[in-house]
């Protein structure tokens, strides 16, 4: 495990892990983890800020009926990323939605088996 990842797991005790470090259920979870690691290294937030925002997100989800079985942990992680980048002025919720729709469009027009690449036309809708 890298020093950065070790620091993150130490600062955010809720991260699912085993003796050797964090574990992920799916590739996208590792992607979301890696993005938080990178943003932290860029100084966008401290781990203390992150842990507080994540705890807030989990509390909100539980209040809304999240079963909290651990399966949804990285969904909360992703939601925290989305809200923190908006609060920190990195981007806006509107932009996130626009790019999400653009990726959806890109997947739709990409023949099965080809790499999915975002293009300008995907935004023109």
């Amino acid at each position: 495990m890298s020093a950065a990842a070790a620091k993150a797991t130490a600062a955010v005790p809720s991260i699912p892990r085993d003796d050797d470090g964090p574990v992920f259920r799916a590739p996208w979870e590792a992607q979301a983890f890696a993005m938080a690691l990178t943003l932290h290294e860029r100084g966008v937030f401290t781990w203390t800020e992150w842990a507080a925002a994540l705890a807030e997100e989990i509390k909100r989800a539980q209040a809304a009926g999240d079963p909290d079985t651990g399966e949804t942990y990285y969904l909360h992680w992703l939601a925290t990323l989305e809200s923190l980048v908006a609060t920190k002025g990195v981007t806006s919720t509107e932009t996130l939605h626009r790019y999400r729709d653009a990726w959806d469009h890109a997947a739709d027009r990409t023949p099965h088996g080809q790499p999915i690449v975002l293009q300008a036309e995907d935004f023109a809708r």
Binding site: W28, L78, L96
Partner: peptide, 13 residues
């Protein structure tokens, strides 16, 4: 849906 959100975030960042 989740993959779309992850990709959106990654391309913006």
């Amino acid at each position: 849906e989740t993959e779309l959100r992850v990709r959106a975030l990654e391309s913006i960042l």
